[in-house]
């Protein structure tokens, strides 16, 4: 299993007095992606993430964040998590273990545009890894996780379950989902509307390279069904910076259009339009009360996961249990 790089210095302080994990402790994505098995890859990320938490000097952080806290004399030993003790040789108390489990749906966009890559792996692979990581993490928390892999239609569907073998099936479904042609959220949304009897959490992993009006309409439909929605935008660094140099015939992976482009001539304009689209997306998510996060494929996954959970924690949300009161719309994005 690839190890994270040794950390030899403290990370910067986070708001609320919490300390960030030390720099250098995250796993390089290129290294991570060499792990062929998706479940293993996810496990590495989660374990590394959790071990990072263990080394945090601020005790309250992990307890609140992960629903674990270090054992203090006088705690009720019924809530001691013996598995964690077996793994970590430390005592932790579980909280809200008996509360209703969270239902989480992972919507993974596997259209052709997600097949773009300038690194050794494409966005789809990265998205699958993020999805697998979240599924693994949620399963550890005994939450029900479902999967909808889609392009212009639904390619894989697994209802939200917490039972033996479900995680494995989910990983298999992710590994084998083929890359489609175009992107259409309508089909997965209808599927969720049909099958999700209870409200839960919907995590959408996509590059969201579509007109804002379409995205806004489709995300609005998701929110109208009452689910809490988190959008994780997966982008290749080249899509953000447009760092190409040679004049080329650019080929749209989804529409098949061709365009002669001199990157040096159009870079500034591309970045402006890209940023404008991102702002519109941010505004749309904000208006709909949707949390939005952006992940570049060259970012370490565990760092991304850390930032995601941290951000939600700062806003009073827990990436686990749903409160009885509906979630208030808060500003999304990083």
């Amino acid at each position: 299993m690839p190890q994270s790089r040794p950390d030899d210095k403290q990370g910067a302080a986070l708001p609320g007095g919490r300390a960030a994990p030390r720099t250098g402790s995250f796993i390089e994505p290129s290294t991570l992606m060499r792990i062929k098995n998706l479940q293993m890859r996810a496990k590495v990320v989660v374990d590394g993430f959790l071990s990072g938490l263990h080394r945090s000097p601020v005790h309250g952080f992990s307890v609140e964040f992960t629903e674990y806290r270090q054992y203090s004399p006088g705690d009720d030993l019924r809530f001691l998590d013996w598995r964690l003790y077996a793994r970590s040789d430390r005592y932790y108390i579980k909280r809200f273990e008996d509360e209703t489990n969270l239902r989480c749906y992972l919507l993974v966009d596997l259209s052709r545009s997600m097949g773009f890559h300038t690194l050794a792996y494409d966005k789809a692979e990265y998205a699958k890894t993020v999805a697998a990581t979240l599924a693994y993490f949620l399963t550890l928390q005994r939450d029900a996780v479902g999967l909808v892999a889609f392009d212009q239609g639904i390619r894989e569907y697994l209802p939200a379950r917490f039972r033996a073998g479900h995680l494995h099936r989910l990983m298999m479904a992710l590994e084998h989902a083929p890359a489609g042609t175009s992107t259409d959220l309508a089909a997965p949304l209808e599927q969720i509307a049909r099958t999700a009897r209870k409200r839960g959490l919907v995590v959408l992993l996509s590059d969201l390279l579509a007109p804002i009006e379409t995205i806004e309409t489709q995300l609005g439909q998701l929110r109208s069904q009452g689910h809490e929605v988190v959008v994780i935008r997966i982008l290749d660094p080249a899509e953000i910076n447009f760092g190409f140099r040679d004049e080329s015939l650019f080929f749209d992976l989804e529409s098949g259009r061709e365009l002669y482009v001199d990157p040096t001539a159009v870079r500034v304009d591309y970045q402006r339009r890209f940023a404008e689209h991102a702002r519109d997306l941010a505004r749309a998510c904000n208006d709909l009360g949707i949390d939005r996060y952006e992940l570049a494929t060259d970012q370490p996954l565990d760092r991304a996961l850390f930032d995601l959970l941290n951000s939600r924690m700062r806003r009073g949300r827990r990436f686990a249990r749903r409160r009885s009161a509906p979630a208030r719309p808060v500003a999304g994005g990083r």
């Binding site: 390279l209 040679d246 004049e247 650019f250 749209d252 992976l253 482009v261």
Partner: peptide, 16 residues
């Protein structure tokens, strides 16, 4: 053109 470049979407690009 020096070659062909696949790209995820041309929605932010204008022809040169």
């Amino acid at each position: 053109p020096r070659g062909r470049q696949d790209f995820s979407s041309l929605m932010f690009l204008a022809p040169t």
